[in-house]
Computed example of a mutant assay.
Amino acid sequence: MTVKVLLVDDQSLLRLGFRMALDSQADFEVVGEAGDGAQAVSMTRALRPDVVLMDVRMPVMDGIEATRRIVAERSPARVLLLTTFNLDEYVFAGLRAGAGGFLLKNVPPADLFSGIRAVADGDSVISPAVTRRLLDAFAAHLPDPETGRSASGDRLARLTDRERGVLGEVARGHSNAEIAAVLGVTEGTVKIHVGRILGKLGLRDRVQIAIFAYESGIVRPGTNRHV
């Protein structure tokens, strides 16, 4: 399959560099380039890419707001954010807006390619451990656990006890294999539980599962356990 990619960055030289890299791969097709978030939204609507490779800081409209609007329009495109600094606060906001993950702009080409492919397949390019560190680092941006628990109570009630346990393990940064070992089930069973959690809570990926768990108070920032 060919993955259609829309490049979004206000620096034309960076777009050129990414285009040259992606053109070296037979399964990528760059369908367009945008210089700001507003263009990204309209071009995503018109070109229907599989992945939008989105810069965070741009004029007119930044990548966070553009991501939010693309997701709000229920576009099938997945957004992969690009940032200069690891654990950038804007990246956290972008994940909450619905982005499928983030990469640093100086990412090696092989990691860029695998990241785009993963996002196109509906996965996240952020490893579980990095997800946990990201959320812990920006714990101050999260609501008070009691407030979050109250606001999320109705949605949490949709989950079984086992699904709540899996949700907590995902937020703690454990892979499916690690969760299977902890719970004494098969990895396939864990995948089924993760899929049901996504469906019941109306979430897109494991990143949003982790964010929901932190916001609802199931997992406390700065700890390695869920409550």
Rank of each mutant, 00 (worst) to 15 (best):
Arg74Tyr: 00
Asp123Trp: 00
Gly101Asn: 06
Arg117Ile: 02
Ile116Leu: 07
Phe113Asp: 04
Leu112Pro: 09
Gly94His: 09
Ser127Glu: 14
Gly98Lys: 07
Ala120Ser: 12
Leu80Lys: 04
Ala99Gln: 05
Leu104His: 03
Val125Asp: 07
Lys105His: 07
Val130Ile: 14
Leu95Ala: 08
Leu81Ser: 05
Val125Glu: 06
Ala93Asn: 08
Ser127Val: 12
Pro128Arg: 01
Lys105Cys: 07
Phe102Lys: 01
Ala72His: 11
Thr83Asp: 06
Leu95Phe: 09
Gly101Ser: 09
Arg96Ala: 14
Ser124Tyr: 03
Asn86Pro: 11
Ala77Cys: 11
Gly94Gln: 12
Leu87Asp: 10
Gly100Leu: 01
Ala137Gly: 12
Ser114Met: 10
Ala72Glu: 15
Glu73Ala: 15
Thr67Lys: 02
Tyr90Ile: 00
Leu95Lys: 05
Asp88Thr: 08
Gly101Pro: 06
Ala93Tyr: 13
Phe92Lys: 13
Ala72Met: 10
Arg74Lys: 14
Arg74Val: 06
Leu104Gly: 05
Pro128Ala: 07
Pro109His: 13
Ser127Thr: 15
Ala97Ser: 11
Leu103Tyr: 11
Asn86Arg: 13
Arg132Ser: 00
Asn86Gln: 13
Val119Cys: 11
Asn86Leu: 12
Asn106Gly: 12
Gly100His: 06
Val125Trp: 13
Ala129Tyr: 04
Val130Gly: 00
Pro76Trp: 03
Glu73Asn: 13
Leu81Gly: 07
Leu87Gln: 10
Ala118Gly: 03
Asp111Pro: 00
Leu80His: 05
Leu81Lys: 09
Ser127Asn: 07
Leu103Met: 14
Arg96Tyr: 00
Gly94Trp: 06
Ser114Trp: 01
Arg133Ser: 05
Arg117Val: 10
Leu134Asp: 03
Ala110Trp: 00
Ala129Leu: 12
Gly94Asn: 08
Lys105Ile: 09
Ala72Thr: 09
Ser75Tyr: 02
Val71Thr: 05
Arg74Ser: 14
Gly94Ile: 07
Glu89Phe: 04
Ser124Asp: 01
Arg74Glu: 15
Glu73Val: 01
Pro109Thr: 13
Lys105Arg: 11
Arg69Pro: 00
Gly100Val: 01
Tyr90Ser: 11
Leu103Trp: 02
Tyr90Trp: 09
Arg132Ala: 00
Pro108Met: 10
Leu80Ile: 11
Ala99Gly: 04
Ile126Pro: 01
Pro108Trp: 04
Phe113Pro: 10
Ala120Thr: 09
Leu82Tyr: 03
Pro76Arg: 10
Arg78Leu: 01
Asp136Ala: 02
Arg68Ile: 05
Leu80Met: 08
Ile70Ser: 10
Val130Glu: 15
Arg68Cys: 05
Ala93Thr: 02
Ser75Gln: 12
Ala93Ser: 12
Val79Gln: 10
Ala120Leu: 00
Val119Lys: 06
Pro108His: 06
Val79Leu: 10
Ala129Gln: 13
Leu135Cys: 01
Glu73Lys: 07
Ala66Thr: 01
Ser75Lys: 05
Gly98Glu: 02
Ala93Asp: 15
Pro109Gly: 04
Arg96Phe: 03
Val130Cys: 05
Asp123Pro: 00
Pro109Ser: 13
Ser114Ala: 14
Ala129Trp: 03
Leu112Gly: 06
Arg132Asn: 07
Phe102Asp: 11
Ile70Pro: 04
Ile70Tyr: 02
Gly115Arg: 08
Asp121Glu: 15
Ala118Trp: 01
Ala129Ser: 08
Asn86Phe: 07
Phe92Cys: 08
Asp136Pro: 00
Arg68Glu: 11
Thr84Met: 14
Arg68Gln: 12
Ala97Asp: 08
Leu112Arg: 04
